[in-house]
Amino acid sequence: MTALLALAVLGTLALGAVFAVAMDGRIAQLAAGFARQRIETEAPDRLNRDLAAVWYLALAAAGLSVVPFAPGLALIDSPVGIVIWGTCEALTIITVFLHGWSSNAPFPLIGAYRYVAIGLPVMLPSMFVLIAAALPAESLSLPAIVESQRGMWNVIRQPLGLPLFAIVVLTLTLRGPMDFADAADIATGTSAEESGAARGLWEIARAAMLVSASALAATLFLGGPLGPVLPGPVWLWIKTAALMAIFAWLGRRVARTTPSRMLTILWIVLLPLSFLHLAMAGVFAL
């Protein structure tokens, strides 16, 4: 059973990443990238440069491993599943930073520092959203959170949860309005000095993280594998794919403001909103 679940995690990650790249219309572009030379900058931090994308992929896989594919059935059935996911979120910030740091050039470094400044205040609402989702289940385990949604999905009883989590997903996957690491004004930031396979691998890792974060959002808010007729994994895939499409659409459509203004919005509007969300979830759970 464990082998089957491991296969499900890897298969979901691989097929989901292909789906994510296809949604961006970048399959051919990605294939073209792998045929090209990888550029070497002067005195790069080679270890971290090579590890950043791999690390990013590994975090996506680790995050997905706690998601239940059928009621009560996750590869890592941890009593503290959402804490493991939260760790993956926090380490993603460090990974993106290392990606920008390692090429030893100004624009990537600006992107790296900018992302850390934005990532920190995004993590705070994220933690409150995760805790709020755990309240009705009275457990930090994801299978228990799924069970708690048999009567009613969290997306209905915690209406602010999914919109707040969407901001977290866009940040973790470097998309659109939250892509402060790889922005146009710094010539694609942390990726500015990367070409060829390195650029392609980073793209794949971003896509994999979108799969993982969307699957988690489906589990937290849409009842994960719960649903009539079809088997659990199929419901999870349908819900994950739908959320991926929404996040990709938001990423393409919503404008990105300046980092300093986004910081103000995060600390002054979204953080208090996530407090309110947690309080509402608590009152509802009582």
């Binding site: 309005p177 938001l250 459509r253 919503v254 404008a255 990105r256 403001t257 300046t258 203004r261």
Partner: peptide, 14 residues
């Protein structure tokens, strides 16, 4: 062009 929050994303006074 389409797009959401296009004007709003530019900080006032900038």
């Amino acid at each position: 062009p389409g797009g959401i929050w296009v004007r709003g994303a530019v900080p006032r006074g900038l």
